[in-house]
Structures are given as structure tokens and as C-alpha cells.
Write a protein that binds this DNA or RNA. Structure first.
Lengths: 226, 226
DNA sequence: TCCCCGGCTGAGCGCGATCTGAACGGCGCG
DNA sequence: CGCGCCGTTCAGATCGCGCTCAGCCGGGGA
């Protein structure tokens, strides 16, 4: 999952970037509204954390523009305590959630998880597919009850696949959502990791669709509608 | 499905060509308005992605000419940010959708799917015909619930047939829509692939109309559940 | 009936896509 | 500072796909 963090306070943004990174997100950071707007337009984020008090262009304006352009990426707004009007206008502008500063990193993470879940149209807090099960809260996955030992990237890969199970995901899409901006596009890391993941969760789970990408096959008996 | 990509920016067009190819389209590329106009006149595209700022002939003019000539191919326009007047004149000229640069590849793909669906007069996001069902979003097809394992070309073939079920499709038409420009016209690949497809979806689905082509027969008793 | 033409099919080939094992280099930790 | 873990790279192996070819079949007209 890839997140755009828009925050001008240097300390806070560094701290958040770390926390988000630790939580397994690929993080891009924008320090002002202009940069935020550009990045959000350019890169396919899964979710945006948007501070409102920003240099150059105000957060609300950035959000408004995105929405006017038809972007539906979930946005979580950070507001200063008591800045009530900000909150309202933020929601009006199309925010999906908000959080008042100061806050606990934990809460931010929880809200992000919820947002991602909602935006993927998934009800339950844990993902499952066949004997596979993944709990974003604990960042832990199991195959038929057995806990898996996954590295960070393996986990992220599995997470993304499970969020979009049944769909063919192109290598490009994976790269765009697992990594942040600067990443060498022609490299076969994805293949390598798919390989490693297969070795851990069983070879039949991830189907490769030649010329298109990969698909995590939801075995029969799944509820979850698209 | 075959798409004409009209874009003069070298980097962007290369990137888009890749992405479109990945998504299973046959892609032709025109780098200026003249070429675009010629290709659009000559080849039967299913959809056109048209950049507006073009050398030689402007995108809007190209579109206007096509429309004047009676072409109804859906056209998606790419505009530079904020070029509002372009957008308006683009719509006036007969565009079906627009996207402002920069944009996410995924959004372009989603909009193209929507356009193709709309242009075929199909409401539901998934195609169905008899026990056959095809979901373009997941790039997956099923026969009476059983998932099919189709190769890229088999899938494209089936997709095209299902989009035009009930109509006789000539071999030429198939070739023109499944491949890009340079393709050896006297070859029997189509027959081979029809054969393979029949083997996978059952022999009675695709009817041969001698001397004319093939027809996918929509059996009686369709309910179609979205 | 025989021949011609269009369509069908099984086999096989070449290429590019994908996989995989091994090795490298950075980083954190003891 | 040495060790182990991890992400990445590379090169060779492998495999599947799309295409061609050649022969077969079946229908229809002469």
C-alpha cells in the first residue's frame, strides 16, 4: 500500500514517515500544497494523509481540486485542535476521515487501515482467501492456521494481492503500489518476491497470467462480493 | 480490443503503449494529427485516446473530421491541466470522455473500460452469454461458474465475440480488432484460436458461418445478473 | 461422383516471458 | 567489528504462447 503524506511540520512529518514506513506502507512526502497536488495527480496512492495548514496551497484547496478532477483516493485530514471550521470545509471538500492533532500514531494507523478497507469494499478487518488469512492490525498472516514468517516486502505484496484478490494485477501496478516514487521500473524484483511468496504460501495460490500479471485466486466458497 | 493512441510526447506515449498493451489492448500509435487522422480513417479502432496538443493537425480538428465523416468510435481526450477551453471544444467536437494530465494509468484504463462498455450498449460491467461470463475488470471468464484458463489471445478473442454476440464476425474483422497494424493477413491463426477456444468453452458456443465468419450465439433464457 | 474451396486440427518451432538459484551490498544489532 | 537478514541484481534455465505448416474433412457445384 502506498500513502502520500502531506505535512509541513518537519519533525512531525519525519516521525510519521517513519511510523508509516514501519507499518509497511510505501510513503511519499509532500511539504507544501503545490507538491502535494502534483504528487497526488501523478502517482497512484492508495490513501492520502493531508495536513490542512500548508504553505503555497491550502490543504482544503488541494483536496477540492483532486475531487473536482474526479479522484476518489481516500483522504484523511489532519487538523489542529479546535479548528472546527477547517474540519467542516474539509469534509465538504471530500475528505473521508479526520484526526485532530495531537494524536496517537496508533490511532492514525487504525484509521488508515479502516479507510483502505472501506475503499476496497471489504467489510471484515482481516482478509482471507482460501486457507490464507491476513490481519492488517497485527501485520500477520497465516496459511490454514499456521503463522507465516514474511519479510516486510513479502507481506506488503501479499497484502496488496489479498486486497484485490480475483483481479489480475500487473507487475506495473504492483511496483507502483509497493514502492515509493523512485524505483527502477525494469527490474525483476516483483518476480523474485512472487517466487518467494509462493514458496511460503504454497505454489498454487498465486496464478501467473502471462503477459498480464498475477492473480490471487479466491477459492470456491468465498463470500465477499467485488 | 484495439486502441489508437495519439500522443506526441515520446516518454508518455511509450509508457501508455506499454500499459495499454499490458491491459490486453492491441495498440497503434500516432505521433501527430496527420498520422492520427489517417490511421483513424483506415483502421477500425474500438476506442481512441487522443492528446490535444499535436503537431501538424490539432487534436480537436482531427476529432471534428472523424465525426464529420461519420465515425462514432468512442474518443477519450487527454488535456493538459487547466486547459479548460480545450476541454469544452473537445466535447463540442464529439469527445466521449476526457482526462486531464497528469493522470493515473489505472484511471485511464478504467475510463477506457467504461467507454468500451458504453459504446457496446452494455450496461453491466460483466458480459454474459449462455453459461458464459466474462469480467473485463478481472480479466477472467467462466463457463457455468467454472473459471476458464485462457491465454491472452484467447481471452481477447472471446471478449470481442461476447461484445458482439449474435452478430456474425468475419475473420478479417477479428484480425483487425485483435492485432495491431502489421499482421500477416493470410494466416489461419484465427481459425486455430477459435478452435482452441471451442475446446475450452464447449464446441457449440461459437457457430461457424461458412464464407462469412463466426457468431457467438446468445442462447435463449438470459437473465444476466450484473 | 469428383473436385475445389473453405474450414479444422494436431504437431512443432522460436521467442519472449517468467522463474530460480546464487551472489552482492546495505543496514541494524549484538 | 562481525554476523545475519533483507532487498536487489544477474544470468541461465525453463516454459508457455502465438504462429506456421501440412494434411484432413465436408459441402456444394459441375
Amino acid at each position: 500500500m502506498r500513502v502520500l503524506l502531506v505535512e509541513d511540520d518537519v519533525d512531525l512529518s519525519r516521525q510519521l514517515k517513519l511510523a508509516l514506513g514501519d507499518a509497511g506502507y510505501a510513503v511519499d512526502h509532500a511539504a507544501d500544497g503545490e507538491e502535494a497536488h502534483f504528487l497526488g495527480d501523478t502517482e497512484p496512492y492508495d490513501v492520502v494523509v493531508l495536513d490542512l495548514g500548508l504553505p503555497k496551497i491550502d490543504g482544503v484547496s488541494v483536496l477540492e481540486r483532486w475531487r473536482r478532477d474526479g479522484k476518489t483516493t481516500p483522504v484523511l485530514i489532519l487538523t489542529a485542535r479546535g479548528a472546527w471550521s477547517d474540519k467542516v470545509s474539509g469534509f465538504d471538500a471530500g475528505a473521508d476521515d479526520y484526526l485532530t492533532k495531537p494524536f496517537h500514531t496508533e490511532e492514525l494507523l487504525a484509521r488508515l487501515r479502516a479507510l483502505l478497507r472501506r475503499s476496497a469494499g471489504i467489510a471484515s478487518a482481516t482478509l482471507s482467501c482460501g486457507g490464507l488469512r491476513l490481519d492488517p492490525r497485527a501485520a500477520r498472516a497465516t496459511v490454514s492456521g499456521e503463522p507465516l514468517r514474511l519479510t516486510s516486502l513479502e507481506y506488503r505484496l501479499l497484502h496488496y494481492l489479498m486486497m484485490h484478490q480475483g483481479r489480475v494485477i500487473s507487475r506495473t501496478e504492483l511496483v507502483e503500489h509497493l514502492y515509493d516514487q523512485d524505483f527502477d521500473r525494469d527490474s525483476n524484483t516483483i518476480e523474485v518476491f512472487v517466487g518467494r511468496l509462493r514458496k511460503k504460501i504454497g505454489p498454487d495460490r498465486i496464478e501467473t497470467v502471462r503477459g498480464l500479471g498475477y492473480r490471487l485466486t479466491p477459492l470456491a466458497g468465498e463470500s465477499d462480493g467485488t
